[in-house]
Computed example of a mutant assay.
Amino acid sequence: MVTVLVIMTAGTLVGYFLRNRPKIILTNDKLIMAAVFGLLFLMGVAIGSNPTIIKKLPVLGMQALVIAVVGIVGSVLAGGVVYYFFFRKKS
């Protein structure tokens, strides 16, 4: 856990000092997206290679769908509240 906090703090400091360099920020965005897609792919490989998960997929799928829908609805609502209080233009 300490390692994660140290890495995040170091990343925050580096990001702070590089914030005025748009070329680096654009490259960083592309790298982040590549990393996210790579992690999603590897998670799919791990799920597909697990016979227990594949056998129970119908039940797990319905539970996952419910959890995903509730998570999406909650995120959209929370985002709307945050936008309303912090980011909307005041007339």
Score class of each variant (00 low, 15 high):
I72N: 00
V73T: 07
V4T: 05
G15S: 11
N28P: 00
F37K: 06
V59R: 14
L60M: 14
G71R: 03
V66M: 12
A34G: 00
M33W: 10
T27L: 09
A34I: 08
D29T: 03
V70F: 06
L13W: 08
S75I: 02
L42M: 13
I53R: 05
I25A: 13
L26S: 13
I72A: 10
I54C: 01
P58C: 05
G80D: 08
V81A: 14
L13R: 03
F85G: 03
I7Q: 05
K56L: 15
G74F: 03
G44P: 01
L31Y: 07
V4E: 08
R19N: 08
A34V: 04
F41E: 02
T27D: 02
L39R: 03
V76M: 09
G74C: 04
M62R: 13
L57E: 11
G61A: 08
V59K: 14
T52V: 12
F85E: 13
G15L: 06
V4H: 03
I53M: 14
P58L: 06
Y83I: 01
L65N: 04
G48W: 09
F85N: 13
L42K: 06
F37H: 01
N20T: 05
F87A: 05
G79T: 02
T12Y: 15
T52W: 09
T52H: 10
L57R: 11
L77G: 11
M8D: 05
F87R: 06
G80K: 08
A68H: 06
Y84M: 09
K23H: 01
G11P: 03
R21W: 02
L31F: 10
V76A: 11
L57V: 08
V66T: 06
K56R: 14
G48T: 01
K90S: 09
F87I: 00
I25Y: 01
L18N: 10
A35I: 10
A34H: 00
M43L: 13
M33F: 09
M8S: 07
A35K: 04
K56F: 12
L31M: 13
L5R: 06
L18A: 14
I32S: 04
G71Q: 07
L40G: 01
A68W: 09
K56N: 15
F37Y: 07
Y83W: 11
T3D: 15
A35T: 09
K90Y: 04
D29V: 04
I47V: 15
I7Y: 06
A46C: 00
N50A: 10
M1I: 01
K56G: 07
V4C: 05
N50M: 06
G80N: 13
K30N: 04
F41S: 05
V36H: 02
A78P: 00
F41G: 01
L42I: 04
A34Y: 04
I32Q: 03
K30S: 07
R21E: 13
G15K: 01
A68C: 06
G80L: 12
G38L: 15
A64E: 13
V59I: 15
L42F: 11
